[in-house]
Simulated scan of single mutants.
Amino acid sequence: MPPLKSLIPGLALSLLLAFASIWAAELAIMREFGFSALTIAIVGGMIIGNTIYPLFAAPCHEGINFSKAKLLRLGIILFGFRLTFQDIAGVGLAGILIDALVLTSTFLLAWYLGRKVFGLDEESTILIGAGSAICGAAAVLATEPVLRAKADKVAVAVATVVVFGTLAMFVYPAAWHALVKAGYLANNEFAYGVFSGATIHEVAQVVAAGKAVSEDAATSAVITKMIRVMMLAPFLLILSSWLAKRHRGSGPGRGKVQIPWFAVLFLVVAGFNSLDLLSHPLVTWIVSFDNLMLAAAMAALGLTTHISAIRQAGVKPLALAALLFVWLIAGGALISSTLLAWL
């Protein structure tokens, strides 16, 4: 690790942007539109990174890289304090199976469309697929260390989940109210919540879409979403193993399984949190600290993302995310309605 002195400027800048993002995320207008601190952090980082940051980038370089790598992993590990295994009981076996099927089908569809139809590179395809299938920006960030992806590809993937996750937050409740009023759907708020939690990208967007229907809908939506988030760890382990087999013999170190220990520790922390050994105020403080770590990592990512690189990516990543969004609505509705009726 670089000397502490060399980390201070970049680390301080990342944390400053993170604090500002967390503050901005609490503003009424930001909460209304479901913009999380992570989204605000990367956008703010990109604005500064493409304007004034090059003037003082040199002394900040080490600290920014530290934020993107170490603070990111710490943030993913501590994310486990948002979950308990008891959450699973809230939606039952149907909720777990719905999450698993939506995740698997969405990612496999992303791989087919991204590689075979749009001809996207492997990193972009996996990042967009993970963000759409699991939990938006957090999933993209967690997948990046496994892929060792470039900052601009991560930023493009984050941008796609922000666009369609925000759209979902408004489309879902509006469509629900319209279909119930027209008599095409039964007024089953629990089912709406499970469907929303299993298919909408970001946790903040799930909360907003759920509360737009009712508090009961929001509760089942958030529980379903957090179970989907919990599936991030096994997803990363499977992805690492699959990538190792895919690239075996293609270069030094490319064929080795890179176990994402931060993902394993994420599950360990969730298990520890399930024991309810810590006081609620302490867990709340840890979650707030975790928000800071993830926002700092996002800000650092934004600072090193060049708009020109995103422009070069073209419309294909957005087109892929759009088709996945359509699948999440149509396919997610089919999966959730079928399993809820059976189980």
Rank of each mutant, 00 (worst) to 15 (best):
P9C: 06
S14L: 02
A24W: 09
A25N: 11
E26F: 00
L27P: 10
A28W: 06
I29G: 05
F35I: 03
F35C: 02
A41T: 04
I42R: 08
V43I: 15
M46S: 06
Y53I: 01
L55N: 14
H61A: 12
L74E: 08
V91H: 04
G92S: 03
L101I: 11
L109Y: 09
W111T: 13
W111S: 13
W111I: 09
Y112V: 13
G114E: 07
K116R: 14
I128V: 15
A130D: 10
C135N: 11
A138K: 12
V140C: 12
A142Q: 06
A142H: 04
A142S: 10
L147W: 04
R148V: 00
R148F: 00
K150F: 01
A151E: 15
V154S: 15
T160E: 08
V161F: 00
V161E: 02
G165D: 05
G165V: 00
L167S: 10
L167M: 12
M169F: 02
H177W: 01
A178P: 04
A178N: 07
A186G: 14
A191Y: 02
V203S: 06
A204S: 15
V213D: 05
D216S: 14
T219H: 13
I223M: 12
T224C: 05
T224H: 01
I227V: 14
R228D: 06
V229D: 07
M230L: 15
A233N: 08
H247V: 00
R248Q: 12
S250Q: 13
P252I: 00
G255R: 07
G255F: 01
G255A: 03
G255T: 02
V257M: 15
A263T: 11
L265D: 10
V268G: 14
A270T: 09
A270D: 09
A270K: 04
F272W: 12
L275N: 08
S279C: 00
P281S: 10
T284D: 15
T284R: 13
I286R: 07
F289R: 08
M293P: 10
L294S: 09
A299N: 10
L303P: 11
S308W: 00
A313E: 14
A322E: 08
L324G: 13
A330Q: 05
G332F: 02
S336C: 08
S337Q: 09
